[in-house]
C-alpha cells in the first residue's frame, strides 16, 4: 500500500509522475503536517493531497479537497484506520491513506 502511494509522489524524485509537475504548495513547508499525525480532537485545513489515480479521485469525490476543514475524531485500536469529520459527515480512512494528505492549521482558503 505504502509503496504504491509513494510512486505517486510529485516532484523530481519520481520519474513516473505524469507531467513532472510540482504542486504549488510544498509539503515540507513549515506548519504543514500529515493528516495521519493529527491527534483525536485536532482539526486542520487540507493544504494539499499527494496521490493520483483511484485513491486521489476517491478522496476528492468524498470531499477531501484543498481548503477543506478536517477534524480527526478517533483512531481505531492497534494502529487501524482513523475517523475524521469532513463536510458535515464522518469518514474513515487508513493511516497509509491519510499520510498522503497534508494539512495546516488555520482556515486559510485560496483558489
Amino acid at each position: 500500500m505504502r509503496s504504491e502511494n509513494n510512486s505517486d509522489l510529485p516532484g523530481p524524485e519520481n520519474k513516473r509522475w505524469r507531467h513532472g509537475l510540482e504542486y504549488g504548495r510544498q509539503p515540507w513547508r513549515e506548519g504543514v503536517r500529515r493528516l495521519s499525525d493529527l491527534q483525536p480532537g485536532e482539526s486542520a485545513v487540507i493544504a494539499h493531497i499527494r496521490c493520483r489515480g483511484r485513491l486521489g479521485e476517491r478522496l476528492a469525490e468524498m470531499g477531501l479537497t484543498r481548503g477543506t476543514v478536517v477534524e480527526v475524531l478517533r483512531q481505531a485500536p492497534f494502529g487501524g484506520p482513523i475517523e475524521v469529520r469532513v463536510r458535515g459527515y464522518l469518514l474513515s480512512l487508513r493511516r497509509c491513506e491519510a499520510e498522503n494528505i497534508f494539512v495546516e492549521s488555520g482556515s486559510v482558503k485560496n483558489n
Binding site: 500500500m1 478522496l59 484506520p81 469518514l91 474513515s92 491513506e97
Partner: peptide, 10 residues
C-alpha cells in the same frame, strides 16, 4: 493495488 479504505461512517 489494494482497494482503498476511504469509507463513510453513516
Amino acid at each position: 493495488t489494494m482497494s482503498a479504505f476511504v469509507m463513510e461512517l453513516p
